[in-house]
Design a protein around this nucleic acid. Structure first.
Lengths: 332, 332
DNA sequence: AGCCCTGAGGTAAGCGCTTTCCTGGACCTT
DNA sequence: AAGGTCCAGGAAAGCGCTTACCTCAGGGCT
């Protein structure tokens, strides 16, 4: 590995001068030297050691992002928003997949901390388990104590900057839509029990039920993981056990798509409503009614909070949920 | 920021001892000291500075990944495979989005080089422009010269380890399928002209045409970017200009889905075949016939090559293309 | 009892870079 | 011509950590 010292020697200057030329320091340097140094850089294929630079400059520039899984379209969209803002700001983004494991999340927080990132953005539902939440919180505080910035997306357990999708309201909208269409026997495909996202969306659904005087009994609510196949399996079970359902609310679009598939397999078609309004929603048959959350906006806002001036206290921004009506729901 | 020196002082030991205890060095240390140091670590919330560690140890452990865009499902799948292998090996993965801009790709190569990553994996079509390819190649060689490993996915321009989806064969399979079904007037929605992926898939299609004695004239081939909406626009144009087409081959699934949408809008339905067999393919209507590439396998293999023992020369692995028949194609 | 050996723990030399402070020659001033 | 000013360029002190090497007790040996 060519080092700065090699370049300096090659060009017959001091490392100080070489460094100044390479980094475009404000200090003026004779043209002849500049050329010699640049020539040496080219010849030796010199690439500065980023770690040495970080150490010497001790400026934090990269940002870390922890998501459940980038290859999940939900997080892919959020990540897109995060990247857009970070890139505009000239930041390197380090993406970490926690795969929904709190321990891995913990590890990544320390790892990003160790890498001296300027900020950590955590996207994805928090954990209802309070012991877990407390441990995460402790590590995050340690990071903040060193001047690091934190923004979270979609979890309320951390007392810092946050941007929250209005999951409860979204759940309410989904319920309201189905109930005003006249449905009385509505099944729910919920996400993993441990996630706050599930809890919030479900809460909204229940509020709608109360408001419209309908029932949403436990035996019509099944849990699955937030995937297409999880949704398909759960839906198959639900329609087999409760043949009289006229509608199913799936708490994300992947599961809604799975539900559609299960219905097709079963040779039936009842109302289906999804959540998140992901790109696929309009391309399935029937096109899926869904509750839209602007996922990229979620990402953009979070990154802006994390990179902008720190607020006096924790700032919370909400991203509203909007119902998008398509053809998978209709009046009874 | 608490430093090792702080911890050592706090525990009343030298930094050497503190370092040894924290890193679990093989050197034996008295239990009393160990406890004091660990207590100090906890109290001071000490997190080692990764940059200082890298510098002192000069071991390369992280791996860099450059993809066109993680939020594109194609790359999301590949990334999943990459991550799986890297994580199993206990590596930190740094993901960079080039957004198909060669300059950004160049920048990222240097950035990863600067970060002393152990390996760089580049996923996504190469550039037909040879000046661009040459510049990339130069930077990659510089990285390799310092002992870095490189693996590329889906591009043949770099003379190192590579895993190649058999795009040409895939194109051939798509063409063969349509031609044996009896189609004679086949339209093609191709990807960006500058990408080798486009060129290869198209070449396969042409080979099939020759073999089956069919025509695939230029005016039936339109180019779009590899997105759903790009495909929809291109398809709309194509069916307006060539109303007698009986089939359309889209060179990726996103564009195929767009094609389906365009056909629906136009109130027509003709054969459509996609490419990549992404998860959506089975959930659209009609379920999409497509050419499957095992994207996660592509990723896993590439990462294995990059992390495993270096070969004597460049190693090339091929991932085969397989036709998946669904309902979007049928005999004329 | 004197010696050496052993090994826990400390000292200090880097790792590659940035940046402050210093040097010394060129140029001005009176 | 002597002194002063300026400024390009260099010397060197870190940044926080690891680790080779050294020290110096304590214990076993003859």
């Amino acid at each position: 590995m060519a080092t700065l010292a090699d370049v300096a020697r090659h060009a017959g200057v001091s490392t100080a001068t070489a460094s100044r030329i390479i980094n475009g320091s404000s200090k003026p340097v004779a043209e002849a030297l500049r050329e010699r140094v640049l020539a040496a850089v080219a010849e030796l294929q010199y690439v500065p050691n980023a770690h040495a630079q970080m150490l010497a400059r001790s400026n934090r520039h990269a940002v870390g992002v922890i998501v459940h899984d980038v290859s999940d379209p939900y997080f892919a969209e959020i990540t897109r928003g995060l990247q857009r803002v970070a890139t505009k700001d000239g930041r390197l983004v380090i993406i970490c997949n926690s795969f929904r494991e709190p321990d891995r999340e913990l590890e990544y927080i320390d790892l990003l901390h160790a890498h001296q990132v300027a900020a950590i953005v955590i996207a994805g539902s928090g954990y209802l388990d309070s012991a877990t939440a407390a441990r995460l919180d402790e590590r995050l505080r340690a990071f903040e104590a060193t001047g690091g910035r934190i923004a979270v997306i979609g979890r309320h357990d951390h007392p810092g900057d946050a941007v929250l999708p209005d999951n409860e309201q979204g759940g309410f909208l989904a319920g309201e839509h189905l109930f005003t269409l006249g449905h009385t026997r509505v099944g729910v495909i919920a996400g993993p029990t441990a996630l706050t996202t599930t809890a919030d969306r479900l809460a909204g659904l229940h509020r709608a039920a109360r408001q419209y005087g309908r029932e949403l009994p436990d035996h019509r609510v099944v849990h699955a993981d937030f995937t297409r196949d999880g949704g398909a399996a759960a839906a198959a079970r639900l329609i087999a056990e409760q043949p009289d359902l006229t509608a199913i609310a799936a708490l994300n679009d992947s599961m809604a798509v799975g539900t559609l598939a299960a219905l097709r397999t079963a040779g039936r078609m009842i109302n289906v409503i999804g959540f998140d309004d992901m790109p696929i929603a309009r391309d399935v048959t029937p096109p899926l009614t869904s509750v839209r959350l602007s996922l990229t906006e979620l990402g953009e806002r979070a990154m802006s909070l994390a990179l902008g001036e720190p607020g006096d206290g924790p700032r919370v921004q909400r991203v509203e949920a909007v119902l998008v009506r398509r053809d998978s729901t209709w009046p009874v």
